[in-house]
Amino acid sequence: MRCEYFDDGRCRSCTFLRTPYPEQLATKVRARRELLTSVPAGAWLEPVASADEGFRNKAKMVVAGRTGAPTLGILDPAGAGVDLRGCHLYPPPITEALPVVADMIARAGLVPYDVPGRRGELKHVLVTVSPAGELMMRFVLRSRDQLGRIRRHLPRLLSDLPNLAVVTVNLLPAHVALLEGEEEIVLTERSALPMRLSLPGGPLDLELPPRSFFQTNTAIAEAMYGQAAAWAAEIGPGTAWDLYCGVGGFALAVAKVGTGAGEGATADATVGAGAARSPRVVGIESSPDAVAGARAAAARGGVADRVTFADGDATAWALASSSGAPDLVVVNPPRRGLSEELAGRLEGSGAGHVLYSSCNATTLARDLGRMPSLAPVAARLFDMFPHTAHDEVMVLLERV
């Protein structure tokens, strides 16, 4: 991928852009195998590569510049705006929308937030695209002061962008290095973005509310959920937990095993002799908005009778659970990994299998060491973030 922003030094976020992509992927695979020494060499499946451009489903644009002439992109070391509307990491629905929203910001007279001066109103514009090409757009403001201007200019924005399905305003009053605040104001009739994913055994329908997490790379997310469904089909769990479940991707993929979705998926390795059946799944997530989206997706997908989602801390819930050990536990923690208490709970739980999805191989290696009774039997790297040192690794553990 060639990038004019990288070539002229305006943006260096894609650290390894000048390294050929096959070499990037090979380097990641080698690094993960060297770090995760408890995973046998024969347990590693072929890595899942990404497209090297147009793969990011979410644009997190810092708004800077001046009233009438905003920039959408990043800040330079001095805090000035660097416009990146043409960034090649985004697919066409996003790159086509960014100039339109910049024109709307200028026309409405919205005041970009000046980070060094700590003044202004509009901090970020966050744009997410669904597999169907629909958009969710969120304006992050310091206060309600310019909310009325956005409301007045919303009809034209919706007319100019017919694929714009959800528009919100998020309030972030504090001068902090965060993307969003706690309060969300929905300005459209629809309040969540449908995400229909393609898995080998059939579609997986998710609902993405504004303040909820979804994997940045949709194609890689599909591959990860497909792998989880394939492993679950081979294990044949009757019960499962999905801790840190987000909007329910893993939980719903596992719940659909035995109903069509998940059947036909290819795991590339035999991990057990269990026959596919439809398990009962509990998903735990600390974000109430994400839980609401997961519940809506379960109802929409016809599995609400088999999947229960609850709002709570994963560690506290697992420690307090009196329901006995499930057959399968899925964990997809943040970069800090599992707490020592949760790793200990899983180690002593009696659960037959644990599927660990990690965005930080260093904490993954630490956590695998904390669960010696659970042996890695399959592992796979998913290249979620080309041109960077980051990736996702999924490891299937089996009790020995």
Rank of each mutant, 00 (worst) to 15 (best):
L122P: 00
D83L: 02
L135I: 15
N163F: 14
A174V: 10
P131N: 05
G86D: 15
F139S: 00
A51S: 10
R144L: 06
V127H: 01
L161W: 01
L147T: 03
E134K: 02
A59R: 05
T128A: 07
G73I: 11
A59W: 11
A69K: 15
Q146V: 11
K60H: 08
E53V: 09
R119E: 11
L141P: 07
L141D: 04
A51K: 09
Q146E: 15
R149P: 04
A78S: 14
L157C: 01
L171E: 00
L89W: 01
T168I: 01
F55L: 07
V166R: 00
V111L: 14
V169H: 10
G65N: 10
G117E: 05
A108Y: 14
D160Q: 15
R144T: 07
R138N: 11
F139P: 01
P173V: 01
Y113T: 02
D145K: 09
R144C: 03
P155T: 13
L122I: 00
M104V: 05
R156M: 00
I74H: 05
M136D: 14
A64S: 12
T168E: 13
A106W: 06
D103C: 06
L141G: 08
A108M: 10
D76T: 03
E121F: 01
G86A: 14
P173T: 00
S130D: 08
A80T: 07
R119K: 08
D160A: 15
L154A: 04
P155F: 13
G79S: 07
K58N: 04
N163I: 07
R118C: 03
L171C: 01
V62Y: 12
P99N: 09
P112H: 10
P131M: 05
D83S: 14
P162T: 02
R156W: 01
D52P: 07
G65W: 06
P99L: 07
V115G: 00
V167T: 14
I74P: 03
L161Q: 02
V63R: 04
R56H: 05
L157W: 02
G109V: 00
C87H: 12
D103P: 05
L172E: 05
T71P: 03
Y113I: 02
M136Q: 13
I105G: 03
P92E: 03
A106T: 07
I94L: 12
A59V: 11
P116K: 05
V100D: 08
R152Q: 07
R149E: 12
K123Q: 09
L154F: 02
P99C: 06
N57H: 15
V62M: 13
P131H: 03
S143N: 03
K60P: 04
T168V: 08
D76L: 00
V115E: 13
P70V: 15
G148A: 11
K58D: 06
K123L: 02
I94W: 12
G54P: 03
R142G: 04
P70R: 11
A78F: 08
R149A: 09
V111E: 14
P77L: 09
A108G: 11
E96F: 04
L98I: 12
D76R: 06
V82D: 07
P70T: 09
G148L: 01
K58Y: 05
